[in-house]
Write a protein that binds this DNA or RNA. Structure first.
Length: 545
RNA sequence: GCGCCCGUAGCUCAGCUGGAUAGAGCGUCGGUCUACGGAACCGAAGGUCAGAGGUUCGAAUCCUCUCGGGCGCGCCA
């Protein structure tokens, strides 16, 4: 069964073609079909006539009138009336019958409603967090984790095949440096300059057996391994799991190693050259501002060599799309990563480099200080402990990833109407309570019997159905724009639409039974969609609160 | 110096692949309540969309410049 809004869109396009005639050139873009903010602009509005007007060399409102006639004929009983408005918009007023069909569609889709709606399915790799294993995960990582995880959930939902990946920087001088810091603590000495401070270093020094006496490389490796385990545990508690934990070190093992293999590919592509004893990558050819060293004159590989090898590894795993969710301080990385990818012969359109902006924590109007230097920063664990997983994920996700955000810890913990996450969860719990009151048998009966025909609907019932019908498109747009925060907005608006319906209409024990069935069925559809949207954010949908 | 992100209501932010009177939450002010969960609902006040040009029938949205804020620019990772 086709989605009713898709059918509407098709009807508009058919009417457009009919109005334009077969010999007219195609308009420059597809007509929009949107839900106007104002009720007197109809249930849906389209700019089709305004797109057609230049093609037909006629006044937009005249075209609109013709189009209106076509649409009236094409849509039949679905349409109550159509109006020409403003510069040539067509406002469509749909019948209650159309809305009832809409609800029937939602119910028929069941758990699948809105899923698998992506225009093309891709094999996607989402790499996120990838925090250095030399310190605890902090609030910035929390935002990255919440976003990457929700994006991965969203991708899966719309039909992509998703791999979630964490890149472990367990190679290079930082590991040795970390080892020296832990060893110094174990020996009761001062941490070396540029070393790692913070209580967790002292804790590691106690936990690693023989930390004071063993070779410093071993201490470093073990400390890193323990930090990775801690990150894994913290992320698990935050509701985030990975399919692949990819070790940077593994790129330097074997013969040829991943790095050597990457260099071979670059050489085949003619993208590298030797100068001043070092091996350089010709990234300027691909828009970088300067060429980059990948192998130092000492023979050591730079971290960039690892990045190249890693990118090549991903390419060879056959992903259609590779998403990197990067911290705010990584935008310098974008140009050279894109260049490196092209230097390997890759298509840069398959690469998505997303930058997460900063998080500022606020408590009672005061900024919470986050000084990494002093080893004082709010960790992911502390954030979860203070405000809980649901509130943390909601507040980290309800804003666009490319804007800095403030999270008010007090608002996030307040269990009241001020707090949007509770508002949405409350709507879900309230539906659960209403359905409990109706009883399982009654609810199953209402859903199974199908949506009754011939009911006259209340505006808030139409509004709720309309909001539900928007879900598949919302999910696809959020996915295509990497705009996870739209899911949060949608969840909130859906909760509002349900709450308005609940205010206006008694659900259980209303007469006649067909009306009760309809309202129960509508509640079931709303509950399922709220739960789904919350699940994509990683926020729970409680049966009671 | 070069580059990236941002600048929209008192605050926090949506809206940005161009559409009608620019929205939400919080805050402020004023109301509502014997239906299922008041963690609710209704209403009001509040905006030169940083500024200036440009493109367009139409610009918060696209382009250019200016101003302001954040961040980044290593043979460190």
């Amino acid at each position: 069964m086709a989605h009713p809004v898709d059918e509407l869109r098709d009807a508009v396009e058919r009417a457009s073609s009919a109005t334009a005639g077969s010999d007219a050139p195609a308009p420059k873009s597809r007509p929009t079909l949107e839900r106007p903010r104002q009720a007197d602009h109809g249930d849906y509005a389209t700019n089709a006539a305004m797109l057609l007007a230049p093609v037909m060399k006629a006044a937009p409102r005249e075209v609109a009138s013709k189009l209106a006639e076509e649409l009236t004929a094409g849509l039949g009983a679905s349409l109550d009336r159509v109006e020409v408005a403003g510069p040539g918009f067509l406002n469509l007023f749909l019948s209650d019958a159309w809305y009832l069909d809409g609800l029937a569609h939602v119910l028929a889709e069941g758990d699948r409603f809105g899923s698998g709606s992506a225009p093309v399915f891709e094999k996607v790799d989402v790499e996120f967090v990838s925090a250095n294993p030399t310190g605890p995960l902090h609030v910035g990582h929390a935002r990255n984790a919440a976003y990457g995880d929700a994006l991965a959930r969203l991708f899966s939902f719309v039909g992509h095949d998703v791999t979630r990946e964490f890149y472990i920087n367990d190679f290079g001088s930082q590991v040795a440096n970390f080892g020296r810091s832990v060893q110094a603590r174990a020996r009761g000495e001062e941490v070396p300059e540029d070393g790692y401070v913070g209580d967790y270093v002292a804790t590691l020094a106690l936990e690693i057996e023989g930390a004071a006496t063993r070779p410093v490389e071993e201490v470093g490796d073990e400390a890193v391994a323990m930090m990775v385990e801690r990150a894994r545990a913290s992320l698990h508690a935050f509701g985030v799991e990975f399919d692949v934990w990819f070790s940077e070190k593994s790129l330097h093992r074997g013969s040829p190693s991943g790095v050597e293999h990457g260099f071979e590919v670059l050489a085949e592509q003619g993208s590298s050259y030797r100068s001043e004893g070092a091996l350089w990558l010709r990234t300027t050819e691909f828009g970088d501002d300067k060429d980059r060293v990948i192998e130092r004159s000492t023979g050591e590989h730079t971290y960039f060599a690892s990045d190249i090898a890693y990118a090549q590894n991903k390419r060879e795993r056959g992903f259609d799309r590779m998403v990197y969710v990067l911290g705010a301080d990584h935008h310098g990385y974008i140009g050279r990563m894109r260049a490196a990818f092209q230097a390997l012969g890759g298509d840069p359109d398959r690469l998505d480099l997303l930058i997460m902006q900063f998080v500022h924590l606020v408590r009672a109007g005061e900024k919470v200080s986050m000084s990494k230097r002093a080893g004082e920063f709010v960790t992911l664990d502390e954030l979860v402990e203070e405000i809980g997983v649901d509130a943390a994920r909601w507040f980290l996700l309800n804003r666009s990833h490319d804007t800095t955000i403030e999270v008010d810890l007090q608002l996030a913990t307040s269990e009241s109407s001020e707090n949007p996450v509770y508002y949405v969860q409350y709507a879900h719990a309230r539906i659960a309570a209403v359905l409990r009151k109706a009883g399982t048998d009654r609810v199953e009966g209402a859903v199974a019997s199908g949506v009754p025909a011939g009911l006259a609907l209340h505006p808030s019932e139409r509004a709720l159905i309309s909001k539900l019908l928007a879900w598949p498109q919302e999910a696809v747009e959020a996915s295509e724009r990497r705009a996870v925060h739209r899911i949060a907005s949608y969840a909130y608006e859906l909760a509002q639409a349900f709450t308005a319906f609940y205010r206006d209409s008694q659900i259980v024990d209303v007469e006649p039974p067909e009306l009760e069935s309809f309202r129960i069925a509508l509640s079931v559809a709303a509950q399922g969609t709220i739960a789904r949207a919350l699940d994509l954010l990683g926020v729970s949908a409680p049966q009671e609160m």
